[in-house]
Nucleic acid binder design. Structure first.
Lengths: 155, 155
DNA sequence: GCTTGACCTTCCCCCAACTGGAACCAGTAT
DNA sequence: ATACTGGTTCCAGTTGGGGGAAGGTCAAGC
């Protein structure tokens, strides 16, 4: 195997700059075991190789897609696993799309109800305001984003 | 004024149950000075009256609409202020609707890009997966939710 | 050799908005 | 007296890092 080239090592600042992440974040990912550096220099500096850089970019992009750190961890396992089937990945990603859909639906309902209150407010110098009345509960609909409020109140 | 009736006092559990909030949350709101109890019993119990209950309900609903605690604080000031103009309230609420719109737009863009990746994945037992490739960066579009990723990386 | 400045290390505290738990009182029923 | 429920305090943890202090390192310039 001619693959004995040690692939240029980078310090944390270097790899962070290239990956497009704050240095603090790269250090954090190392702390939580998401992307470990290839090793340490004699003086304790974290040293990253090209493979680690790829993982960091992967995570930055997955995070930008709204995946949580734990989901990223799972995606990285699949990313590293040469035996994984694309069905596993598709299942995870599909679930995430569904979650985004749910989130958008909730936001949309909220937005429309609030916009309705805003539209019903004359918005001049007079003190009476349908928005505040609506929030106070004298409005027809009693609880807007029920799935967000989720008040179990301990019981 | 015949309004000398001391309006039945409630313990924290009672008022929390009626307001539809967890007891812990009501105590938290008292701690951060959002809704102070009317007073304390001789033995130190927080005691709430009907006015405090109304404020708690108001906050629960405003929170369900996605207002932050600080926004709730501001809304409460307006709610309490008999001199405020409805224009102030409308401005705050309109800004919140706009924020919700922005948030939904970002989510929508994310959702569509991810759904596109999912659609392009055959999802069978084979290991090659366009979703992972897309996340790794070999995909045409380099950075999905640019406004969410916002990587300044310190510098 | 010495200094300067950029970069690295660890450590701890901070953010929102709570939630859970421990240890300890208060009030009521049996 | 005891059991049970519900109140009180404080402390720690959650997500995903950010800010900054105190101190070690590295390359360049004089």
């Amino acid at each position: 195997m001619p693959d004995a080239s040690p692939s240029k090592m980078m310090t944390i600042g270097e790899v962070a700059r290239i990956a497009g992440l704050p240095t603090k974040t790269v250090r954090y990912y190392a702390d939580i075991g998401l992307v470990a550096p290839e090793g340490r220099s004699a003086t304790g500096y974290r040293l990253y190789d090209a493979a680690a850089l790829r993982r960091l970019v992967f995570i930055r992009r997955a995070r930008a897609f709204g995946f949580s750190i734990e989901e990223c961890r799972e995606l990285l396992l699949l990313y590293d696993d040469q035996q994984r089937s694309s069905a596993d990945v598709k299942r995870l990603a599909s679930a995430h799309v569904a979650a985004l859909d749910r989130q958008m639906q909730e936001l949309s309902a909220l937005r429309d109800e609030l916009a309705h209150l805003v539209a019903s407010c004359h918005g001049d110098g007079r003190p009476d305001c349908p928005i505040l009345s609506g929030l106070a509960g004298s409005s027809p609909n009693a609880s807007p984003g029920a799935s967000i409020g989720e008040n179990d109140q301990g019981a």
